[in-house]
Write a protein that binds this DNA or RNA. Structure first.
Lengths: 167, 167
DNA sequence: CGGGCCTTTATGGGATCGCATGGGATTTGA
DNA sequence: TCAAATCCCATGCGATCCCATAAAGGCCCG
């Protein structure tokens, strides 16, 4: 497995520690984790959501790629650089696969008692569980519309067994 | 055989385990199951039905293909990522060909005692048996062609009346 | 054509393993 | 010296593996 998939919700303990889901840790290790598990986890506030984005080396490279695509000394680049790099924290993962979220990150995502880890393929997000439920419901309702477009184009004719299964 | 066909109903045991029909397992293996049977089964709530969609690598690639066509950091991609990756569960298949359905998936499809596995070609669905019966009956009442076949006396083997599982 | 053996499959239960979580001990930095 | 962060160990729960059983279907042989 080489992508972050699924959603897991873990608790924040009295010391502010949270376990990263085991399957996510596996992805991080395979992601070319500089320095093995002792390396770090790239984490920063989501640009457009009340959540945190996180990932390994691959995500870091992707951010570099985005910035590289913009002209030097442009306003956009400056703003993106600040927005992304400026708030990035490299969190260390302890021997039990846990991290401690700094105060400013906790505040941005409104995290206190628990964290929902949401796999998004090349990265994952950390949400306050209730906020994520709302977000998920919203996403699903929007995708309902989009989905029909995809379904019409991508479904092979062999899928004829459909009758009776849906309406 | 390389498509999921027919319908089978299996029980959920005290631990929440369900056997995947043997013929479906065969399809999964032939589907280019990365890492052999130890790989996983991609499963998520149907967007438009009270059921679960599931499939193998082919289905996973399809999801990737959808996302690959969208630009990074676009709204559409975010929505789809959350709706698909976030909701997708990679269920592991044990040595006996069984899976354990997580609570949120069980809830979506209203599964408790048994599951009807419905082949849809490249993927299959998992239904609460009674719900599926209702759906099937509804669909059949709409399909007038079936009546004509009966009247003509040329009862095709494909008629569904007997596809129920063993029990 | 029929009967019996053998394989496959679903299902149940017990045992084991891994993971999330909590608490104490130890180090680090001011 | 004290506070805060890190490391290490304990534990409980859930998930996973392994084996046993039984029923069904297929196959071969009579």
């Amino acid at each position: 497995m080489d992508r972050f998939v699924s959603t897991f919700t873990n608790k924040i303990d009295a010391k502010g520690r949270v376990s990263i889901p085991a399957s996510f840790r596996a992805v991080l290790e395979r992601d070319g984790y500089a320095g093995g598990i002792a390396g770090g986890l790239y984490c920063y506030p989501s640009l457009d959501a009340q959540a945190l984005d996180a990932g390994g080396e691959r995500l870091a490279k992707k951010i570099d790629g985005l910035l590289a695509g913009l002209p030097d000394y442009s306003d956009e680049r400056d703003e993106l650089s600040v927005a992304l790099y400026g708030d990035v924290q490299v969190l260390s993962i302890d021997g039990d696969g846990r991290i401690v979220l700094p105060e400013n990150l906790r505040a941005h995502a409104n995290l206190d008692a628990a964290v929902s880890f949401v796999g998004l393929g090349e990265k994952f997000q950390m949400w306050e569980p209730k906020l994520f439920e709302a977000r998920r419901a919203e996403a699903r309702s929007k995708v309902q519309v989009t989905r029909k477009l995809f379904a019409a184009g991508s479904r092979p004719s062999s899928d004829g067994g459909d009758e009776g299964a849906r309406e």
